[in-house]
């Protein structure tokens, strides 16, 4: 008797194998696996959105909530109905107000989070990098703090794209900006190199996990 877990394992194994077939090249097996994945994911996400977003926040309160809450929820209900019109091009304009509310609230939240969660704390941390109490050696603090400060400043300058007219009718950044930006580019390269190593490590771990899954499937691993 084949157990459901074995069937699930075989199916997962086959899907993994079909995706791995992409190493040889694009092929129908890969496409089948991808389309199955997209279909299942979309259906699952739709079910999740219904049960874990609309139901607890809209449907359930509308059904069992107090009158005031139900009245207030009429607005998001209407907005949700209008937003659904976005799926049909002819009626997509009706969903614009709902999208406007989403974007407006999201922008406000992003602004608040960026200011309170990143800008001030990170600027403060850059300044605090020279806190002599953070390390036993003031020299180490100064060196590390200096590098961090240089890294932050030059990286920001690197993304400074203002330029002035140059000879020949072209535009060019100021020389000082160019020099600082070059240093910022070095810092960026180092940062991206570290990130690349992290991404490869994550992908390598995923590969190992898949191989481990195969080993487990065939009883070679644990």
């Amino acid at each position: 008797m084949i157990s459901p877990d074995l069937i699930a394992g075989i199916f997962a194994f086959l899907l993994s194998l079909m995706i791995f077939s992409y190493l040889v090249g694009d092929n129908p097996l890969f496409r089948v696996a991808v389309h199955i994945f997209v279909g299942v994911s979309a259906g699952y996400v739709a079910a999740v959105a219904w049960w874990q977003a609309l139901w607890p926040d809209l449907i359930f309160p509308l059904v069992s909530g107090p009158a005031l809450q139900r009245a207030l929820l009429a607005v998001p209900l209407v907005l949700s109905g209008l937003l659904l019109m976005k799926a049909w091009p002819a009626l997509s304009r009706l969903g614009t107000p709902s999208m406007a509310i989403l974007v407006g609230i999201g922008s406000a939240v992003a602004i608040g989070g960026a200011v309170t969660g990143t800008l001030f704390p990170q600027i403060g941390a850059t300044i605090n990098a020279f806190d002599l109490h953070k390390a036993a050696s003031p020299f180490e603090v100064l060196i590390n703090g200096g590098f961090i400060l240089a890294g932050v400043a030059t990286t920001l300058v690197y993304f400074h794209f203002s330029a002035g007219p140059a000879a020949g009718g072209s535009v060019k950044r100021f020389s000082l900006i160019e020099i600082i930006a070059f240093v910022g580019g070095i810092f960026l390269a180092i940062t991206l190199g570290v990130l690349f190593a992290g991404v490869y490590s994550a992908a390598l771990t995923a590969l190992i996990e898949r191989l481990h899954f195969f080993g487990t499937f065939f009883g070679l691993g644990n």
Binding site: T191, V194, L195, G198, A202
Partner: peptide
């Protein structure tokens, strides 16, 4: 975090 997000 994943190794790809850790540095940031």
């Amino acid at each position: 975090s994943s190794a790809q997000a850790g540095p940031m």
